[in-house]
Design a protein around this nucleic acid. Structure first.
Lengths: 328, 328
DNA sequence: TTGAAAGCGCTAACAT
DNA sequence: ATGTTAGCGCTTTCAA
């Protein structure tokens, strides 16, 4: 593979000139520059990014570490990040931590070792440690879930409030035994949404007890937990914390011959592409996923440009979209 | 940030010894090795991957370039790739080409410049050029769609055959004006599935004409195209080439007050997580997406280990899963 | 077993 | 405007 010296030799100039000509830095005699470009083209020269990055001590790539590639909420965030990164000349590499702290740690290590310019991260659980990144000066912005013990940039959703609102909506719909299906303890969104549910129930004068289950944020687990909840507590409505789990819930309901809305009221977080297509259409708490991603990327780029900026925490609003599954 | 020389100084050894100790290469005196590890830990030493890669001329990362992160088919492939890469110590970075040849080219450039160890790619259209990668010795395996003009490793699905089978299934179901909604010309899967549809119709003695529309592989485009097809040709059944488009089709049907199955038979490619939940459940052609990914990764790793292996083309089978949408 | 030293390919002072 | 040169941080001969 041709190197910069090959190009220099062929064009009859120094490597420095080649570098300058190809990077459009400083001023180079147009004629020479042209010669260089010709030589580069003739040799099929492809700059070695590794060498360049090593020398420059920086990389034009952003790492995006998300907890589930198969969740449309996160892929929408990914698109948001990518779209703004793109326009600033950054590439973004997506790493799937799979709700697994160990995988997450590994990807964070890779990000550090590869000296990416910045990281957008949706932390899996409580124990995420980004201090090595921060220590080295690599900015990190948290999305969806906060990074505790770190006062950094973050883009979150007012999720407790949204859960409260969704629960009230079910109460108003006449449901009297509302349950909640949420994720593992320590996953902040799972905890917050459960808290929102609880506060709405506590405020109600139609329901005293709470009925909830925690399980992994996966379809199969959600289905099993729902079956269990159904059999044990016979709830007449359910608040579900994401669309992946909602699929499991719908499967469980079907298995028990229960119809969403009529038999069991249903509200789920995340307006998945299919949410309006099931029967009855699913009432959801829509989160502005794309915006979360684009804002996070913007925050990150801003901080890369100026590391002294004070940390910014953005909290976006979610929107309850009423459809058939929350009415009898 | 601490470098290898800092560690060497602190441990009172040479940088060579540090490198050897930390990489477990060659033999190092256990006592010294321990001292080195201590020094490294004390300094919070994080090896600079850039420098290492530059020296080694290789990277333990695989690039996966897919055409749509929001399509569950591709995210399932991603999981397959990741799972096997993981076990061999490789990280995989996911790049979303977004069915956009320009973006794809950019990511392929990045992959080349960053000297990734290998690339798994689902080519957007016809014009994809991987020769720079290949020329430099970076192996590429194509998934879902072939790389024309290159005799390389690839993992495909016998998609024409599957489309033919799906169409016959509709014919047997008694549908007599079967249409097809497919992707842009040049997207091999779109062309093959259309061909499969055509061959089934040609073989039938119940239908002479074909009714089809091509549009971008997106929900909104699919909806518009379906509306158009419905109004112009009044098909009584539809074969749809992926689940993203199927959503648009279902929306269109609903808008026209047409019920899947009873009014318009429906078969879609890809068994999306929600496919069994819509009403009636969606008959699909399920592709072994996870296997496509895992096999592709294995092929890639094999080739990285031994570049002289003859190229291997694997063609997996798809499976028709009959559900309610293809019966009256 | 260990160290000295070369060098991966590039960019950025510095000198001209 | 261009060239010379040092050096980014690491691994790997080569010698000792």
């Amino acid at each position: 593979m041709a190197t910069i010296s090959d190009v220099a030799a062929r064009a009859g100039v120094s490597t420095a000139t080649v570098s300058r000509a190809l990077n459009g830095k400083s001023t180079v005699d147009p004629a020479l520059a042209e010669k260089v470009r010709e030589a580069a083209a003739a040799l099929g020269y492809q700059p070695n990014g590794l060498a360049r990055n090593l020398r420059r001590q920086e990389t034009a790539v952003l790492a995006l570490v998300i907890s589930d590639v198969e969740n449309p909420f996160f892929t929408a965030i990914a698109r948001g990040v990518e779209d703004v990164a793109q326009t600033s000349g950054y590439s973004v590499v997506l790493c799937n931590s799979d709700e697994n702290a160990e995988k997450e740690r590994r990807y964070l290590d890779v990000a550090l070792q590869e000296r990416v310019a910045g990281v957008v991260l949706s932390p899996t659980g409580g124990g995420t440690d980004v201090s090595p990144l921060l220590g080295r000066g690599t900015p990190v912005v948290a999305v969806d879930r906060p990074l505790d013990a770190v006062d950094g940039d973050q883009v979150l959703v007012n999720t407790k409030c949204a859960a409260d609102e969704a629960t009230r909506h079910l109460i108003e719909g006449g449901y009297r035994r509302i349950g909640c299906l949420t994720g593992p303890e320590g996953v902040r969104t799972a905890d917050d949404r459960l808290a929102g549910y609880r506060s709405a129930i506590a405020d109600s004068d139609t329901q005293q007890e709470t009925y909830f289950r925690r399980c992994e944020l996966r379809t199969a687990h959600a289905k099993a937990a729902t079956l269990d909840l159904l059999d044990a507590d016979a709830p007449d409505a359910l608040l579900v914390v994401n669309s992946t789990m909602a699929i499991g819930v719908l499967e469980a309901l079907r298995e028990r011959g229960l119809r969403p809305g009529r038999d069991v009221g249903l509200v789920s977080f995340d307006d998945a592409p299919w949410a309006a297509l099931v029967d009855p259409p699913l009432t959801v708490v829509a989160q502005p996923a794309y915006e979360i991603g684009s804002i996070a990327a913007r925050l990150l780029l801003d901080r890369i440009a100026d590391s002294s900026r004070p940390p910014e925490a953005r909290v976006l609003a979610a929107e309850l979209i009423e459809r058939g599954s929350s009415h009898r």
